[in-house]
Each structure stands twice: as C-alpha cells, then as structure tokens.
Amino acid sequence: MTFTDEYKGDNAMEAHVNTKLHVIHTNDRKQMAITLAQYERHLSLQRHKIVGIDLEYDNDPEATQKPALCQLSIGKNHPVLLFQMSDSERCTVFDNFLADPRYTFAGFSINGDKTRLERVKLEVANFVDIQKEWRVPEATKPLDSLGDVSGVLIDDYYNNMKKKITDDKRQRWAILPLSRRHIKYAAKDAYAAMALVADTCVYAEGLQLTNTEWRGMLGCLMIHNRGFCAPFLHRLTTADLQESWKLPSTIKFHAPSSGKLTLETEHKNGYGDMEADYHIDSEDCINITTGWKDFVSQNGFEAGEVAMVFFYKEEDSIKFTIFTI
C-alpha cells in the first residue's frame, strides 16, 4: 500500500534556527519520480550539482542489513525526499538518479552505506565522504559524526545531533509509520550533508582548484569561528597585490559606504593582523585601499595563490579573514 506524508508550511521540519525543511516521506514510486524530476531541473542549472544523501538501515543483523530509508536533499528551498526503500518495489528512475555521473552525492562515513547498497545491487556515482575529506587541524576532539561537523560549519544547533534519537528508536527505520522525530532526524541528516559541501562551493567564475588547493581549503574551513561557511575564493593576480584590491560586485556585505576594517590572516609568514581602509564604489564593489599593500608585503602573498576570504562583523567593526592555499 503506497503512502505519501508531506511536511511543509507550519508543519515543516526545523533544521536549525530560521531554516525550515519541506519534507516528503513516501514509498510511492510516482511521487518519488516527480520529486527527482524537480531535483534534475534545478541541478541542470547549477555549476556544482550536489545532492546530500544518507541511509538508514533495517534491523537485520549487520552481516545482512539493507537500506530501509534513503534521504536526499538539494537545498533548503527544495523538498527533502525520504524514500522508504524497505516498503517499495524496485524503481529504475531512482536507480538511475543515484548512478548519474553528473551529480556529486555527499555523505558522511559512507563505507557502511556502500556495503548496504551493494546488497540490493545499487551504486551511487561520485560518492564523496565528508569524514575522509575534511579534517580539523589540531582538533581537541575528533569530529566523528555528521552532527559534530555540522555544528562547526553550519550551526551550533547540530551539535550532539545523534543524541536526539535513542538507540531503540534508531533501530525502527523499517517499521511504519515513522514518528515525527524520525522524520526530522532523517531530513536534517540529508540537508546537513548537502549544505556542508554546497556552502563551500563559492568560486569565482572560471576558478579551478588543484587537489592540493581543494584539500587546503577544506582544512581552513574546519577551523572554528572563521566567519561564514561560504567564503569568497579568488586566484590572486599581480594587479590584486598592488595599492588596492577590488572585490567583485557579487560579494554583498552590509556595511557603511566607507570606513576601516581589520585584515587578518594565517599564512606562510605566520599570523597577520592589520587595519586598512575600504570604500564601496558606484558598482557596489568593495575596494580595500590604504593598508592593503603593506598587508600583502607583510604576509608574502604571491600572484597565483588562491585567496579564501571570510567576511564578518564584530560589534561595530568589520573583519576580513584571509587564507591563501
């Protein structure tokens, strides 16, 4: 018997403060196909085609365990799809979506998921393991769950996410109906996996990163308290390292039209902290002026390096934290 339970509007699931998720929980292959078609239309317009994915398993012994629920998310403005695999017939549309090489599927500690999928003869293309790719330099504790990592990069709300559901309830993913607590937990997992990867993909048009630069960027992102999760990435040119640096108009930062800001960096020459002037010109571009050249010289920035810039406010001051990779 097919079912579709939808949670939206006042009934939507809270991911974290100010972020509500529209969730569709279904075993109906038609409803699943409609939702995946919506995903494909949106992803076709995106440069970075990222899908958050997570699996919950049935309660069989670990040696024979299979997926009970597949959670998919492409962002907070689109429904999170919870497809009840344990209570649905095999579907080519679903299989083909997971195997589509155009998409990057982001999960956490995915070896177990891969094993369970193999047992039902399914494979996920471009499966990215957040746990393997991201590390915290000199971390005081290991980030051993998706909730831990999400608490650092997205919102404190995700800290201890795994404790929001008991071990007994975690064993009931194949038993219907799922409780609202199960639905909320599953939706947040898929959304968090997507957001961790998507929110770090803010590239200047045409910027390509080497594997070394990519891993360096992820390492910087995993340092606590470094501003927004979505930095501005730019490969520095010789012109950028002169008297001033003009950022593109795509960088929208609410600030007075001119004033002073603090430039902070951790670079090959060590920690740097300096004050500079800025103004926002008629094209809405932020121009860092007096102080910028000295900052560049002090820290040894070179043309060709990729600058990763976080923007944030501290009381009445503005701070740009710059890493180069």
Score class of each variant (00 low, 15 high):
residue 294 D to Y: 10
residue 42 H to L: 15
residue 58 D to C: 04
residue 204 A to Y: 09
residue 22 H to T: 11
residue 65 Q to P: 00
residue 269 N to R: 15
residue 129 D to A: 03
residue 230 A to K: 14
residue 318 I to F: 11
residue 150 S to H: 02
residue 282 S to P: 09
residue 171 Q to V: 06
residue 142 P to D: 14
residue 43 L to R: 13
residue 109 S to D: 06
residue 308 M to E: 05
residue 36 L to I: 01
residue 156 D to G: 11
residue 134 W to D: 05
residue 30 K to E: 01
residue 46 Q to P: 11
residue 232 F to N: 08
residue 48 H to N: 15
residue 234 H to T: 08
residue 170 R to V: 11
residue 126 N to A: 13
residue 187 A to F: 00
residue 223 I to N: 02
residue 82 L to K: 01
residue 161 M to F: 10
residue 153 L to W: 07
residue 69 L to K: 00
residue 150 S to E: 01
residue 49 K to R: 08
residue 254 H to Q: 13
residue 287 N to R: 08
residue 200 T to W: 03
residue 63 A to M: 03
residue 143 L to I: 04
residue 107 G to K: 01
residue 67 P to F: 02
residue 152 V to N: 05
residue 171 Q to H: 07
residue 147 G to H: 09
residue 87 D to P: 00
residue 287 N to P: 04
residue 226 R to T: 12
residue 90 R to I: 03
residue 12 A to E: 07
residue 149 V to R: 11
residue 207 L to R: 12
residue 92 T to F: 08
residue 71 Q to I: 00
residue 37 A to T: 07
residue 299 N to M: 07
residue 283 E to C: 09
residue 81 L to W: 01
residue 292 W to I: 12
residue 35 T to A: 08
residue 221 L to V: 08
residue 152 V to H: 03
residue 273 D to M: 14
residue 69 L to A: 00
residue 253 F to E: 11
residue 301 F to D: 05
residue 118 E to W: 09
residue 171 Q to F: 02
residue 238 T to R: 09
residue 262 T to S: 14
residue 257 S to Y: 15
residue 242 Q to V: 13
residue 257 S to A: 15
residue 230 A to Q: 14
residue 235 R to P: 04
residue 134 W to G: 03
residue 215 R to T: 10
residue 132 K to I: 13
residue 303 A to I: 09
residue 243 E to S: 15
residue 218 L to M: 12
residue 122 L to E: 05
residue 19 T to A: 10
residue 166 T to I: 04
residue 265 T to K: 05
residue 229 C to Q: 14
residue 61 P to C: 06
residue 243 E to D: 15
residue 251 I to E: 09
residue 141 K to N: 07
residue 316 D to N: 11
residue 94 F to Y: 04
residue 168 D to V: 02
residue 36 L to H: 00
residue 279 H to G: 07
residue 186 A to N: 06
residue 112 G to R: 06
residue 171 Q to A: 07
residue 258 S to Q: 13
residue 214 W to V: 09
residue 113 D to R: 04
residue 290 T to C: 10
residue 113 D to V: 01
residue 1 M to P: 13
residue 139 A to V: 03
residue 242 Q to F: 10
residue 63 A to Y: 01
residue 80 V to Y: 07
residue 227 G to K: 14
residue 219 G to N: 07
residue 164 K to F: 06
residue 126 N to G: 12
residue 292 W to E: 05
residue 222 M to Y: 08
residue 267 H to F: 03
residue 200 T to L: 04
residue 119 R to T: 02
residue 7 Y to R: 02
